[in-house]
C-alpha cells in the first residue's frame, strides 16, 4: 500500500502542475496560431495574475472578485503589450521577435519587483484546505480546484474555438489569413484578441497556483518555459495536444522529483524536450505527415 499511496500522491501533484502548465501552454498555442509569434513573455502573465490577485485580497476584495479583476487587469496588460510591441514588430525576423518578447518579460519582471518586491507572497486557498485522504494519499482541495478550473476553462476554450463565430474566425485566420480578410475578418483584431485571451488565461493559471506554491516576481520564467515544452510536445499549433503535453510534463516532473531527485527534474524535463525536438519535432501527437520545421 505504501508504494501505491506514494504513486497516488505523485500523480496528484503531477496533475496539478500539469493543469497549470496546460493553461499557459494553451495561451502559447493560441498566440502562435494567430500571429506566428512564440511569446516568451507568456509566463509573466501568470506571475502578474498571481501577484495582482494577492494585492487585491490584501485590500479586502473578496477572493472571487479579486480573481476576476486580476484576470481583467492582466488581459488589459496583454492588450497593451500586443499593440505596443508585438503589433509594431510583427514583420521582424524570428530572432528579433524572440528578443522583443524576452525584453517585455524582463520589463514585466522589473515592474513586479517595483510593485511587490522580491518576497514570496501567498494567497489563501480558494476554499477550506482540509486534506482529503484517498488511498492513503493526501489530496488538498486547492489541487482539485487547480485541475477542475483548468479542465473547465480548457473545455470552454475548445467550445469557443470550434463552435462560436469569433472562435471560428480566429481559426480561419490561422488556416488562411488572406481568405479570412476577404470574408471580412480582420486578422489584426484577431491578433489583439488572441493575446488578450491568452493573457487572461495565463493570469488565471497564476491565481490558481499562488495558494499552492506562493508567488514571486520571478515565478513566470520557469512556468513559461515548462509550458513551452508542453506546447512543443503538442506540436505548437495543436491545443489539445499541448494540453496532453502539459499533463505529461507535470506528471514526469512530479515523479522525477518524488522518485529520484528534485534537483535533476529540470534535466529530465529538458532532455525530454530535446529528445522530442530531435526525433519528432512536429510534436508527439502529430500524425506522421507534413513537416513544419
Amino acid at each position: 500500500m505504501e508504494v501505491l499511496s506514494q504513486m497516488m500522491q505523485l500523480l496528484f501533484s503531477g496533475l496539478t502542475l500539469g493543469a497549470i502548465y496546460a493553461l499557459i501552454a494553451v495561451g502559447f498555442v493560441v498566440i502562435y496560431n494567430v500571429t506566428g509569434i512564440l511569446n516568451f513573455a507568456q509566463g509573466e502573465f501568470a506571475m502578474l495574475g498571481a501577484l495582482t490577485c494577492i494585492s487585491l485580497v490584501n485590500m479586502n476584495v473578496p477572493l472571487w472578485l479579486a480573481i476576476i479583476l486580476s484576470i481583467v487587469i492582466v488581459a488589459a496588460i496583454g492588450g497593451i503589450f500586443e499593440r505596443t510591441a508585438l503589433h509594431t514588430a510583427r514583420k521582424s525576423s524570428v530572432t528579433t521577435l524572440i528578443i522583443i518578447t524576452i525584453g517585455v518579460s524582463i520589463a514585466l519582471r522589473g515592474l513586479a519587483i517595483l510593485i511587490w518586491g522580491t518576497q514570496v507572497q501567498t494567497l489563501p486557498p480558494f476554499t477550506d484546505n482540509t486534506p482529503i485522504s484517498i488511498l492513503d494519499a493526501v489530496l488538498l482541495p486547492q489541487n482539485i480546484w487547480a485541475v477542475g478550473i483548468s479542465v473547465v476553462i480548457l473545455i470552454l476554450m475548445m467550445y469557443f474555438f470550434n463552435y462560436t463565430f469569433v472562435g471560428k474566425s480566429l481559426t480561419a485566420c490561422v488556416v488562411n489569413p488572406f481568405a479570412a480578410r476577404l470574408m471580412g475578418i480582420n486578422p489584426e483584431k484577431m491578433s489583439l484578441f488572441a493575446v488578450i485571451v491568452s493573457a487572461g488565461v495565463g493570469a488565471l493559471a497564476g491565481t490558481v497556483i499562488a495558494p499552492i506554491s506562493g508567488a514571486t516576481y520571478d515565478m513566470g520564467m520557469m512556468l513559461g518555459i515548462k509550458a513551452f515544452v508542453a506546447a512543443v510536445i503538442g506540436g505548437l499549433t495543436n491545443a489539445p495536444a499541448a494540453i496532453a503535453g502539459a499533463f505529461l510534463i507535470g506528471i514526469l516532473e512530479a515523479f522525477t522529483e518524488g522518485l529520484w531527485s528534485s534537483g535533476l527534474k529540470d534535466v529530465v524535463t529538458f532532455s525530454f524536450l530535446l529528445l522530442i525536438l530531435f526525433v519528432k519535432p512536429e510534436g508527439l501527437f502529430a500524425k506522421a505527415s507534413g513537416k513544419r520545421v
Binding site: 522583443i100 525584453g103 517585455v104 524582463i106 514585466l108 515592474l111 519587483i113 517595483l114 518586491g117 522580491t118
Partner: peptide
Amino acid sequence: GGQFEIVFFGILLV
C-alpha cells in the same frame, strides 16, 4: 529593494 532597474532595461531593449 531588488533589481527592479531591469524594468528600464527591458523597455529600452524593446
